[in-house]
Structure formats: structure tokens, C-alpha cells
Design a protein around this nucleic acid. Structure first.
Length: 561
RNA sequence: UACCCCGUGGUGUAAUCGGUAGCACAGCAGGUUUUGGUCCUGUUGGUUCCUGGUUCGAGUCCAGGCGGGGUAACCA
């Protein structure tokens, strides 16, 4: 990889802090965790957090846990738990321990009673609206609840009654007793427990009160002995509360450190917005290759190694920023270039006939599987007198800097022969139906014995042997690099109508045996992924992962229109 | 109009105890090449948000300003 290797550990404010904690003896062994809520699928933003958490643990010889932050049964589901585990493993990480916040419910509850007995928490009878109304605003202080001064004994009884199911949903709530005038609204007597007579995917019907995030997260971290609790910037204002709970309980207090979440051009990484795209059928499900979900990226053909390399390269800071999608694509190409087998495929075919080719003869030519990897070997590809080439590789009246086929020009057919264009056949409408050529039999394999050179090598496929297959061409899902800040928040207006195009390609026959999950480079075109979802035996379906860099096209766009 | 966080080339990120800015991607130019891919080489971009201050010396410390982001769920 071209990015910083593991031998030269990254330096950033988090790692600096960890080094300092290790040096001072505050921390013996680093323990981190990735704590997703199982209420949705993981996306690229999570990949950054996962890469960070696991990489740091590894770099410092520590451990990293995977913990389901499953404290709200309303939105969570076992399906997501399974999907999250699979996605983390797909990225290439393995947790040292798998935990569930729900498994800590007994301990967390015991701690709640402790706080009540210390006079640091109370049961409030107010409903949600009343609590919201009395919380005050960003500029005005809140008002104390009429229940705020209940005695510890009464509060304890009430809390036990809550736990025992004596109250209906929303009837009572347990609150921390901090300061209703605090500048940080999170400190204005935050709710710790709410009543939810609801089945939990892990604890079943054992509980009818569930802890809020703030009242479960830090405690879970503490139980697991997390040393550095990494999270995104929006939790900064929660840190005082995180600390307050641990301090009030007198338990081990992990260090919460916040970092900026990952933003990438043309991508949306908000569970809510992704949900709108999926439910509104603007994409074909959570694993649509145009989505930044890990499952979508997988089906797009983005190698996990490339994603991780990207996440490492991106670094970590406290400044919100948006990365160019080109950087992601660089890492994808970088990995695929070294690992993807080369094949030939013509996506927009035009017929090419070699007039002096021996009638009916088919020759099997040797083709390299990967010039970047000599161990990849070679394969045989059928070559014949009637071929298909890419329409854009021929021009009847080419500009001077067009190197490909044109009347009177000679080019190399990759791994085949030199051919010279002698003319074209057209239909009544003037469209080119056939490009006529002659070949030089002495240039077998692509080299001329007389040493003459050609300026271009183009790819081809034998018309009689070509595999007709579905190829899906993807582009950015949005027309704007920043769909999140769409006019009036309506990012749906920015959907790119060309984000998915389906074509029938003409592929070299060996691709008939492509298996779902395999990645190829269609020479001179791009990287393609054999979709494991829709491919059938003998009928593979390919997804364009990313195109090859095309300096010819770039020059065209710059010069012309 | 409260509080918190942040502000380095186009993008992102780095710079030991303060010693005059590095890397990657992108861009540009050239070379190699049976992919106008890869690879190699060279190269253009920064008054480190602004203004003051401390200092022999500040991206790094201090003050003020400007700009960006975040926060008012019985969500996480």
C-alpha cells in the first residue's frame, strides 16, 4: 500500500493521548470497543470507527470488544446483531470479546439503586412533555421537577415498583439529580430509566424498564474495563455526564475521546436518510451497490482491504471534514490492480471483420491473467475472423491525438495480432455496421518481427464465442457532492438518474465460470465484481466497481465540450 | 441569543521541549509500457482564518475578533 504502513504508526491526538496514558502508568493495557446499536446496517462511517478501535488496540498490544448497545428494544433486532457481526468480520477484524449492554442490566440497575440511596437520583411523575417543557432552552435555565425532593426511601420504593411493572409506559421515569440550570442541557437531570413494557431481543420479558444511553454506555465501558472510549464528536456534550455517573458511583472511569465522523463526497451516512432511500425504493435495498452501507459496498465490489486502507489513510481529527471520493477510489483501484484477474469484455460492441483471416478458423491465443502478478498465469482466449470491439475504439475521422483504430490505421488487438482498417460498412442510415480489417499473420501474440510499432492496443472478443451477460454500470447516487445540504433538506431531488445503467456486455468466454464474489479487471474498461446475489451458473452478472483511470477521456472532456 | 468543539496548499492530514511547513490524493510535465491502466521521475499550489502580544524565534503560547460545526429525544 502506498499509505502509511503499520511499521510507522500513525500519529494523531488520540494515539498521542494513549501513549501518554501508557507512559504515565495510568493505563496498563489499552482496551477499546466498537459499540453499535443493532437497529440498522453498518456503513462506511462505521468502518472508520471500527478500523480506529481495532487498529489502536492492535498497535498498542491491547484488546478491542464488540458490544451491542442494545438498550432500546423498540428499534433493535437480532437480524441487525447478526449483520453487524458479519460486517465487522468482513472488514477483517475479530473482536477479543463479544458483549451486550443488555447483559449488564442487573448491574446497571443495582447501581441505580445506589444513586437513589445517595440522593443522586429520583423518580419523576411528570410525562415526557412536561419534562421537556421544564428542561428550559439553550439560553434559559430549566425548572425543578415537583418530584425532585422526594426522599431516598420513597424513590427507592418507586424505582422498585417501576421495575416490578406496577406502572404503565411513560408514567414514571428515573432521573439523575444534577442541576436544572446547568449550561449543558445533558446535565439538567437526565432521564436514566424509562418504562417500556416491551420484549427485548436478548432479555426477553425480564425487564420493563430500560436504561437510556447515558445511563448505560459509560457503565458498560466501565464494566468491561475499557480504557479509551472512542466516539464521534456529537457525544462531546455527553462526556460531563459520562464522567458524572462514573464519579458518583465511584467506579472505574474510562476516558471518552471524541473524533470527527467520516464524510465522503456523494455519500450519505445517516441511518435516517439511508432508511428513506431504501423505504422509498430509490435504491434496491440495503445492499444496493450504490449505497455506502458495508453490504452495499461489498456488492459494489469494494474490497474490505481497500476500505480499511482508506479509513487508516483518512486519519482522525476533531475537525469535521469531507473527503474526496477520489481518495476512496484510489484505494479501491490500488488493491484491485494488484489482485484482480484481467479479462476482456466489450460493453458497447461494434463488429470487426478480418477479411484475410482463414475462413472458419479459430485460434486460441495466450492471455496474461495479471501483469502485476506473474504467478497469476495465463489463459487461452479464442480469436477468429469476426470480432467485436468497443465502439469508442474506432473513429472514422479521428483527431490527431486519437491513437486507436481508424481507416488506414493499424492497431494491436491485445494478445492477438496487428490489424489494419481497410474500410467500413454502413447501413442505410449511415451507421457503421462493420469495420473491415486485414491482419498481419507475422504479428501473432502482438509483436511485429520487423519491429514496427502501433500506437494503441485495443481489447476484443470473438463474436462467435462471446458470452452475453448483464453488466450493471454504477455512478454516484447523487448529482451533488454534498447531498446532505440539499435545498430544503430534500436530498431526493439530487438523485442521479444515471446512477444505475444495465447493459448487455459481450464477454470473453472464460467469464462464464465466474463465481459470485470474484473481482476482475475488464481490460481498459474498469474493475467488475461478479454479483453473488443475482448471478446464476453460467449466467454471471457483473457490477462495475470503479472505472479505470482514463486520461484519454479526461483530455477529451477538457479540450472539447 | 447560552454552552462546547474546531480552523494548516484543491481535498485530507503531519510537524519532538516553541526553531520558520512534511506526506498522501488530486493537478501539471516527462519517461516506461502488448491496458491512453500500472509503474517511475520531475513539478505547480500554503502570507499555517485575521489582528495584536510574549519571545532571539510561534502553525505551535496568550488576548481579542472572524468563520465553521455541535447541543434543547422517556434515541443512540
Amino acid at each position: 500500500m502506498t499509505n502509511a504502513p503499520d511499521s510507522a504508526p500513525a500519529s494523531d491526538f488520540i494515539r498521542d493521548r494513549i501513549r501518554a496514558d501508557l507512559a504515565s502508568g495510568k493505563v496498563q493495557q489499552v482496551v477499546t470497543r466498537f459499540p453499535p446499536e443493532p437497529n440498522g446496517y453498518l456503513h462506511l462511517g462505521h468502518a472508520k470507527a471500527i478500523t480506529l478501535g481495532f487498529s489502536i488496540a492492535k498497535e498498542f498490544g491491547g484488546r478491542c470488544n464488540l458490544r451491542m448497545d442494545d438498550t432500546n428494544p423498540a428499534a433493535e433486532d437480532q437480524e441487525y446483531v447478526d449483520a453487524i457481526k458479519a460486517d465487522v468480520r468482513w472488514l477483517g477484524f475479530e473482536w477479543d470479546a463479544m458483549y451486550y449492554a443488555a447483559d449488564y442490566f442487573d448491574q446497571i440497575y443495582a447501581w441505580a439503586e445506589q444513586l437513589v440511596q445517595k440522593g443522586l437520583a429520583y423518580v419523576d411523575d411528570q410525562d415526557a412533555d412536561a419534562i421537556a417543557a421544564s428542561r428550559g432552552t439553550l439560553t434559559a435555565p430549566g425548572k425543578n421537577s415537583p418530584c425532585r425532593d422526594r426522599s431516598p426511601a420513597e424513590n427507592l420504593q418507586l424505582l422498585r415498583d417501576m421495575k416490578a411493572g406496577k406502572f404503565a409506559d411513560g408514567q414514571k421515569v428515573l432521573r439523575a439529580k444534577i442541576d436544572m440550570a446547568h449550561a449543558n442541557l445533558n446535565m439538567r437531570d437526565p432521564v436514566m430509566y424509562r418504562i417500556r413494557h416491551m420484549h427485548h431481543q436478548r432479555t426477553g420479558d425480564r425487564w420493563c424498564i430500560y436504561p437510556m444511553y447515558d445511563w448505560a454506555h459509560g457503565q458498560s465501558d466501565s464494566i468491561e474495563g475499557i480504557t479509551h472510549s472512542l466516539c464521534t464528536l456529537e457525544f462531546e456534550h455527553h462526556r460531563p455526564l459520562y464522567d458524572w455517573f462514573c464519579d458518583s458511583l465511584g467506579i472505574e472511569k474510562p476516558q471518552q475521546i471524541e473524533f470527527a465522523r467520516l464524510n465522503v463526497e456523494y455519500m450519505l451516512t445517516s441511518k435516517r436518510k439511508l432508511l428513506l432511500l431504501v423505504e422509498g425504493k430509490h435504491v434496491d435495498g440495503w445492499d444496493d451497490p450504490r449505497l455506502p452501507t458495508l453490504r452495499g459496498l461489498r456488492r459494489r465490489g469494494y474490497p474490505p482491504q481497500a476500505l480499511v486502507a482508506f479509513c487508516k489513510h483518512v486519519g482522525v481529527a476533531k475537525f469535521n471534514s469531507t473527503h474526496e471520493i477520489g481518495l476512496l477510489e484510489f484505494h479501491v483501484r490500488d488493491w484491485l490492480n494488484k489482485n484482480a484477474l484481467r479479462r476482456m469484455a466489450v460493453l458497447d460492441p461494434v463488429r470487426l471483420v478480418i477479411d484475410n483471416w482463414p475462413a472458419g478458423e479459430v485460434e486460441m491465443v495466450d492471455a496474461q491473467n495479471n501483469p502485476e502478478d506473474q504467478n497469476a498465469g495465463t489463459r487461452k482466449v479464442p480469436f477468429a475472423g469476426e470480432l467485436l470491439i468497443e465502439r469508442e475504439d474506432f473513429m472514422e475521422n479521428p483527431p490527431k491525438d486519437f491513437f486507436r483504430l481508424a481507416p488506414g490505421r493499424e492497431v494491436r488487438l491485445r494478445f492477438g495480432y496487428f490489424v489494419k482498417c481497410t474500410g467500413v460498412d454502413k447501413d442505410a442510415a449511415g451507421n457503421i455496421t462493420t469495420i473491415r480489417c486485414t491482419y498481419d499473420p507475422t504479428t501473432k501474440g502482438g509483436n511485429a518481427p520487423d519491429g514496427r510499432k502501433v500506437k494503441a492496443t485495443i481489447h476484443w472478443v470473438s463474436a462467435a464465442h462471446a458470452l452475453d451477460a448483464e453488466v450493471r454500470l454504477f455512478e454516484h447516487l447523487f448529482t451533488s457532492p454534498d447531498p446532505a445540504s440539499a435545498d430544503g433538506g430534500d436530498f431526493l431531488k439530487l438523485l442521479n438518474p444515471r446512477s444505475k445503467r444495465v447493459v448487455r456486455g459481450k464477454l470473453e468466454p472464460s467469464l462464464r465460470d465466474a463465481k459470485g464474489g470474484e473481482a476482475f479487471q475488464f481490460e481498459r474498461v474498469g474493475y467488475f465484481y461478479c454479483d453473488d446475489q443475482d448471478s446464476k451458473a453460467g449466467a454471471p452478472v457483473f457490477h462495475r466497481t470503479v472505472s479505470l483511470k482514463d486520461s484519454w477521456q479526461k483530455a477529451q472532456q477538457k479540450g472539447g465540450k
